[in-house]
Design a protein around this nucleic acid. Structure first.
Length: 635
DNA sequence: GGATGGTCACGGCA
DNA sequence: CTGCCGTGACCATC
């Protein structure tokens, strides 16, 4: 078998595999777990001289195993990485643990590796690793920011004046770093990073550091320093193009990238640049034919801030020269050319989606079957697009915005009553108490963590419609498109960037009781969806057990298994066209709001990653043998 | 009142 | 220690 990792010859570092084992957690590798299995990379797959990619990846998928960490404190005190529910430690113990966390991490690895011939199951493994890490980062960010909102409100009640918002991006990165949850810290990738796909969108530069895509939080050129390099030469591995330099020229496949240095605090070029540091690293990478990753940062509507970062793939440095820039000072310029055989650039897809939103027919003259298959039933139009054959099937179904339950479900709906809040619902609200006494959504309607079931305020509550505890009942906000594809038949994608944690839509249809469903099945119909088969992916969103040792998994209230089926043979909505994936970007959250029968909750779908425009949405429909596994590789 | 620009407090890494 | 193709939040200004 071909080796998967290729040490880069001129830069053999000679570093040991694990330069600082006292900091590196030894991690049990993920084990097979039914449909959600992630592939294990065995040690013997790798030549002894090469890195085991798993060696230092601290993401632990197994819920009932503990990570063994060789830190300095007494193991009897407590295990800071305990994943099960543990008793809350006393303050002095926590302080002890915190100080252990604060130990300085080892210097960055000097080992340069390039991945080759990644097999499909390995690709899946790494994609899953990245997916879990991003889920943790994004959900933890929402959690930290909401906590900060509450803190600020309390502080402002006591004293007036400016109370700046915390930097959630940094806070989350620090929490994860101190627990060894950053990826790819034990090696440096040249070229693609396993599990990171062209077109992946990130909201923070810090997130790029956490994932090992680009290790610099400020500088645009990431490079192995000359000190660490075995031959004394710096080697550049990635750049961020964010338009910060006036002499940049970016035409997509070709970039003229300005070297760094010589700018003052106001980003004005005030002295000549020198061929050192990152600039020299770029020159040396060109000399050795080392490709660089390119991440573009630009303003885009729909991100958390106004800026997003998109991984655009790998580029070769073709030439460089010293030039006099617009400022009159000398700058280094590097011509980067995108390498062949990569998927379409994420940044151009984002721009294409923008143009479709502005003027669909001008951007794509052919392929529209309908400009709103919901026939104005949704608040935003749902496109139906097919440019590969003449199948118009989705138009044969009635579009159904919300699920139709049997009438008996609504009997006594009013009996449980609603809340009496007159303003926004706070922690005293009876509906909030039903959710375990914690906020369910943040101020932007992003879900904090998945639960067995969620109670939103409903028609019998007296709170206003802008109450924070009303999100999924308000319907679709993003512009979706049902599209025809060779791989998955029909699929769903969004024209907007969807932030992780955002509500997407309900999974609608006509609800049948178990008895009705049996009759239906006997008649040979095959258009039933069984809610109890959906993978319990809600448990992955907002699971902080790796971060907070006293974290308790949400289990309240427990509900009996769902026994109803959803008939989508006549009425359905956009959700019905979502494809199955073992590593989905959408999860199902059960939600109650308009009646009191918890045996018949609404199936609400939320994003569990930042989903770029035009990327297919996918759900875990459950056992793979019952559903065609439509996506060969997750996205 | 949406864009723009300044300032502030941070951060990892070379 | 410094400085980085700053970042992201916030506020004043246009």
């Amino acid at each position: 078998m071909e080796p998967k990792l290729e040490s880069l010859e001129p830069f053999e570092s000679g570093f040991s595999l694990n330069p600082n084992p006292s900091f590196s957690p030894s991690v049990p590798v993920a084990q097979s777990n039914g449909v959600n299995a992630v592939h294990r990379l065995d040690d013997d797959k790798f030549d002894g001289s090469e890195m085991n990619l798993n060696a230092n990846n601290a993401n632990n998928f197994e819920e009932d195993e503990h990570v063994n960490v060789d830190l300095d404190f007494d193991e009897d005190v407590m295990d800071p990485y305990a994943l099960a529910i543990v008793p809350v430690a006393e303050d002095n113990q926590l302080a002890h643990v915190e100080s252990a966390y604060r130990r300085k991490p080892p210097p960055r690895s000097a080992e340069l590796v390039r991945v080759t011939n990644l097999e499909i199951e390995d690709e899946r493994y790494f994609r899953e690793l990245v997916r879990r890490t991003r889920i943790l980062y994004d959900s933890l960010w929402i959690h930290c920011m909401l906590e900060d909102d509450i803190r600020r409100r309390n502080v402002m009640n006591v004293m007036s004046g400016r109370v700046p918002r915390a930097r959630g991006d940094m806070k989350v990165a620090a929490l994860m770093r101190d627990r060894g949850l950053w990826l790819n810290q034990d090696k440096r990738f040249v070229g693609p990073i396993p599990g990171i796909h062209v077109g992946d969108v990130f909201c923070f530069r810090m997130e790029l550091c956490v994932l090992g895509i680009h290790g610099q939080i400020q500088a645009g050129i990431d490079y192995l320093s000359s000190k660490q390099s075995s031959n004394g030469e710096p080697i550049a591995t990635s750049v961020i193009v964010s338009g910060g330099y006036e002499d940049d020229e970016d035409s997509g496949d070709v970039i003229v990238y300005t070297g760094h240095g010589g700018q003052d605090k106001n980003s004005r070029q005030v002295v000549h640049q020198k061929l050192e540091g990152g600039n020299l690293g770029m020159e040396r990478s060109m000399h050795h034919g080392v490709e660089v990753r390119v991440v573009r940062g630009f303003k885009y509507k729909g991100g958390i801030g106004e800026k997003v970062y998109v991984y655009d793939g790998i580029y070769k440095i073709e030439e460089y020269w010293f030039d006099v820039g617009k400022s009159g000072f000398g700058v280094y310029k590097f011509k980067l050319v995108r390498m062949e055989g990569q998927p379409e650039m994420g940044s151009s897809i984002l721009k294409f989606a923008e143009s479709i939103r502005a003027n669909p027919l001008a951007a794509r003259p052919v392929g529209y079957v309908s400009l709103d298959m919901s026939r104005s039933k949704e608040q935003v139009p749902v496109f139906l697009f097919n440019d590969i054959d003449d199948n118009h099937e989705p138009l044969n179904f009635d579009y159904q915005v919300t699920t139709i339950f049997p009438p008996f479900v609504y009997h006594n709906a009013r009996s449980t009553g609603g809340c009496n809040c007159v303003d926004g619902c706070t922690l005293d609200c009876v509906c909030v108490k039903k959710n375990g006494g914690e906020c369910t959504y943040d101020l932007n309607g992003r879900i904090l963590r998945g639960k067995p079931i969620i109670f939103e305020c409903g028609p019998f509550c007296s709170c206003p419609s802008n109450c924070l505890n009303r999100v999924s009942q308000k319907g679709v906000k993003n512009r979706f498109e049902v599209f025809r594809s060779m791989e998955t038949g029909w699929g769903v994608r969004s024209l907007d960037l969807i932030q992780a944690g955002s509500f997407i839509c309900e999974y609608t249809g006509v609800v049948l009781t178990r008895d009705q469903a049996q009759v239906f099945t006997m008649n040979g119909e095959d258009s039933l969806v069984y809610p109890n088969r959906f993978g319990e992916r809600w448990a992955e969103w907002g699971d902080f057990s790796q971060v907070y040792s006293d974290y308790v998994r949400p289990s309240y209230p427990s509900i009996p298994p769902l026994e109803f089926a959803i008939d989508v043979s006549k009425m359905r909505n956009v959700a019905c066209y979502m494809s199955h994936s073992p590593c989905p970007n959408v999860f199902v959250q059960l939600v109650m709001y308009d009646h009191a029968n918890t045996a018949f909750p609404h199936l609400m779908l939320f994003a569990m990653e930042n989903i770029p425009p035009m990327r297919e949405l996918s759900l875990d429909y459950g056992a793979a043998d019952e559903w065609t596994e439509k996506l060969a590789i997750c996205n």
